[in-house]
Simulated assay, not measured.
Amino acid sequence: MTSAGTLLAAASDWIADHPTSLPGRIAALRQGVPRGAMPPIVQAPASPATVLAAPANYAGQAHAWCRALERADSEVAARNYALPSPFGFDADAVVPPAFFHNSRRWQRAQLTAARGFTHFLSESFIPPFGRLDGRDLERQLDALDGVDVAHLCHGTDVRRPSLSRQRTPWAPFEEDHTTRRLETVAMRNLAVLERSGRPVFVSTPDLLSDVPRAHWCPVVVDPAQWALPRERRGSPLRVVHAPSKSAMKGTRHIDPVLTRLRDAGAIEYRALSGVAHDRMPGLLAEADVVIDQIGLGSYGVAACEAMAAGCAVLGHITAEVRETVRQQTGRELPVVEVDPETLEETLVALAEDPQLVEAAARNGATFVREVHDGRRSADVLLRTWIRAGEGSRRA
């Protein structure tokens, strides 16, 4: 990053850390001025236990966890709200950015409604009521007045780059301003967790290393949505790489290998980006292999969706993550292990032996049905939080 770029990044960080300053207030106006009718407020349903999750809904997971809770326990009603997603993920309510950030009327009304829920799942350290109370997360959660609060961590919010680099040599973190900022934010958020004393959940198993007292709440996919009819696998091998964030997924390690094999006629290679979520099942039904990531040493929603779609999934998984999955589920994680040095030879071996591809795909689909269909996630939330007793009500 150039010196000018570093200064600009530092200025952006300062504004983010000082939302009530004049530059912070001006920056908020970029989200728009609220106009027209106020969006619907999410109210607590009539049920013995009610859960509200907000406001991240990354990859539609808050919505999926809510549905999983309702399927698991007829006395639990769960809702979520979120900002709009460019990928069109489902949510019970979508709040326009102008209202979320700049409408005191919406913020106060949604806070009042949130107090009517018995439980609140705070996602990814994003203040759920916009810029209310100076955009201070802890003050907003304290204002819930007795609602049982838990925290849900999704990734970079608590993932310390310094620890990631110790776990894998391919961690996507350079020694630069961005990495230092990620470390600072993660440390700040971890301090929030310690002060709160509330239950903590992480969506991927690698994050248990960053938050040892957390519970793993597996990501959820709907197997039926992804298991579309597939054409018989043939030759050449059809390979897809669809990174949500290329830098974090290690695309710089992956793309040159896939391009070289494609040019040699060994595989068909399709790179996907910016695709609406509802189109992905159809696209994955046309693939044999999905390269998930090389870098973070774990797996998440994208890998689960590809496994559910019947693809063989390749990625770099640390031994620690594989052992966590084995201990907590009793199953082996069926992501085929690759790194920058073994990716090419592994793909060549798969291209030469379709039975290897079929076995990996079959094991992956079974794994997702058993671990990531929502039952295990709902059990964790119910057993360790919602049905765990009264405990402390302090946010």
Rank of each mutant, 00 (worst) to 15 (best):
S3C: 00
G5D: 07
S12M: 00
S12K: 13
H18R: 00
P23N: 08
G24T: 08
P34E: 12
R35H: 06
A37I: 03
P39M: 02
P48W: 08
A49T: 05
T50E: 00
A53G: 07
A53C: 14
A54I: 07
Q61N: 06
R67K: 09
E70R: 05
G88L: 05
R104D: 05
L111E: 05
T112A: 10
T112I: 01
F117N: 03
F117S: 06
T118N: 03
F120T: 12
E123I: 13
S124V: 06
I126H: 09
D133F: 14
D136E: 02
Q140P: 15
Q140H: 02
D145W: 01
D148E: 02
V149T: 01
A150Q: 08
D157H: 02
R159A: 02
R160L: 12
L163T: 13
L163Y: 13
L163F: 14
S164Y: 02
Q166F: 08
P169L: 10
F173P: 02
E175Q: 07
D176N: 12
H177Y: 06
H177C: 03
T178C: 09
R180S: 06
V185D: 06
A186D: 06
A186K: 06
A191Q: 11
V192C: 07
S196I: 05
G197T: 13
V200P: 04
V200R: 10
V202W: 07
D206F: 11
L207C: 04
V211R: 00
R213G: 13
H215C: 12
W216T: 08
W216V: 06
C217S: 09
C217V: 15
V220M: 10
P223F: 08
W226D: 10
W226L: 11
W226Q: 07
A227G: 09
L228D: 12
P229D: 13
R230G: 01
E231D: 12
G234A: 12
G234Q: 11
S235G: 12
P243A: 00
P243S: 04
S244Q: 04
G250P: 05
T251W: 10
R252V: 01
R252W: 05
P256I: 05
L258I: 10
T259G: 09
R260A: 15
A266F: 08
A271E: 11
A271D: 00
G274S: 04
D278M: 15
D278A: 15
R279P: 01
E286L: 12
I291E: 13
I294M: 07
I294L: 03
G295T: 01
S298F: 01
Y299K: 06
A308I: 07
A308H: 02
A309K: 13
A309N: 09
G310Q: 09
A312W: 13
A312K: 05
V313G: 07
H316K: 09
T318G: 08
A319R: 08
E320P: 02
V325D: 02
R331N: 04
E332D: 15
P334L: 14
E337T: 07
E337H: 15
P340I: 14
E345K: 15
A351F: 02
E352I: 06
P354D: 12
G364A: 04
A365W: 06
F367E: 10
E370F: 06
H372Q: 08
G374N: 11
I386A: 11
I386M: 08
E390S: 13
R394I: 14
A395Q: 00
